[in-house]
Structures are given as C-alpha cells and as structure tokens.
Design a protein around this nucleic acid. Structure first.
Length: 212
DNA sequence: ATCCCGAGGG
DNA sequence: CCCTCTGGAT
C-alpha cells in the first residue's frame, strides 16, 4: 500500500471512530495488565465476564496474591488456558509487590520480565496505560496488515516494524485500536465483510468468495 | 514446532 | 464437526 493510500486508510478509520478504546474492562493499570495477560487466545467478551468478579475481589496485586492460584483459577475457569494464566498472574503479582512497590512498571524490559507477559502484552500496556506509540500485533492486526498490504510481513515482529514505519505518527497511538476493531468487526478471519468495509478502496485484499 | 484450553459461531 | 479468540513459554 502506498503512502497516500495509507493516509486515506487511517483518516477514514479516524473519521468513523475518533477516540477508539480497548473493549477490555479495567479500573486501574494493574487491572489492565491482568486483563491483557488473561486475553491471550480469548475474546474480550470472555475475559470481561470473568474479570468482573475477579477484580471486585482483587483490584490490586497484593489482593490478587492473597487470593492465590486456586481461587484465581476458579474465577477464570471459563477462559481458555486458565491454569497457565492463573499461575502466571499470581507469579506476576508477586514480582510487582516484591520488586516494583505494587505498581506496574512502565518500561518494556520490566514488563516483559513478568511471567505471562510477552512483547504483545507489554506493547498494549505501554500504549494504553502510558500513551506510547507502540504497535501490539495480535491475531487481528497481523491478519489485517497482511490482507490490506499495510504490513505483509511473515511474522509478528516484521509486521510490527512495518506498521511502525509506515503509519503516520499522528495516527500511531490510535492505530492499534482501529486495526483491532476493524479486524474484529469487519475484516474478520473467516468471512471478511468487504461489502461493509469503509477502507476497501485502499486495500489489496480481494476475497475469492462473495462476502456480506 | 508444540502445548495450553474454554466458549462461541458457522 | 471445525475455526477463532488482543499469546507466551518451552
């Protein structure tokens, strides 16, 4: 996709949704970190359903730590990968309490040192909590980047670098959410809704079968 | 490359 | 039934 097309692409998404936000529910930075950690290979709807009760009980790393792996497992049992996530979340809370004064660190290095927190999760926290123009490449952004021609890279790191390089800086912070929401509701994995897409004019993707 | 792992949709 | 969902650790 050429520079002029990229400008049109994001200007259109911006006009349709001037202030995009994550659909994960949270009331503080710790809850944001926990929600993103829990969201791996799970829908936001599924995560929100479980975190409502979990965060009511444990809105801080200290309280989450006190809850323990067993109780956390019971709260998030309806989310996939629940054993791994409960173990990682509690272990992360222990590090937050012991090494960061119970606060969520604001550097990539410290975030990625937390169990269950990788590049993508760190990028989301840096973007949403600290306003940094990072690009967290999840399943939606990878797919949308590839299909549109915005970022044809073969892996998430390549796609991240391409997006950071090609998206105009003024759009970067919000681009993360625009691309996710576009992937979730329009450029869907199974059945892309090209007929309803507002940015198809600048997209390289041509579906083989007719889409609704 | 493989494992983890429930819920929802087609 | 099969595929997908804001991945990370081994």
């Amino acid at each position: 996709m050429k520079a002029a097309a990229i400008e049109h692409f994001f200007a259109t998404l911006q006009a349709a949704n001037p202030h995009p936000e994550t659909e994960l529910q949270f009331t503080n930075v710790f809850e944001l970190l926990a929600a993103v950690l829990l969201s791996a290979q799970a829908t936001d709807v599924s995560v929100n359903k479980a975190t409502r009760a979990l965060f009511a009980r444990a809105p801080t790393p200290e309280k989450m730590l006190a809850l323990g792996v067993g109780q956390v497992e019971q709260h998030i049992k309806t989310i996939g990968l629940f054993r791994t996530k409960a173990k990682n979340l509690v272990a992360t809370c222990q590090i937050l309490v012991e090494q960061h004064g119970g606060r969520v660190p604001n550097t990539r290095e410290a975030l990625e040192a937390l169990p269950g927190v990788g590049r993508k999760t760190a990028n989301v926290v840096l973007n949403v909590a600290f306003g940094e123009p990072t690009m967290a490449v999840d399943t939606h952004i990878f797919r949308v980047g590839n299909r549109t021609g915005l970022a044809p890279g073969k892996n998430v790191v390549e796609v991240e670098q391409q997006l950071l390089k090609r998206i105009p800086k003024a759009y970067m912070v919000d681009a993360h959410h625009w691309l996710i929401l576009h992937g979730r509701y329009i450029c869907q994995a199974r059945q892309p809704r090209c007929a309803a897409c507002q940015v198809s004019a600048w997209c390289d993707f041509k579906p083989k079968t007719s889409t609704i």
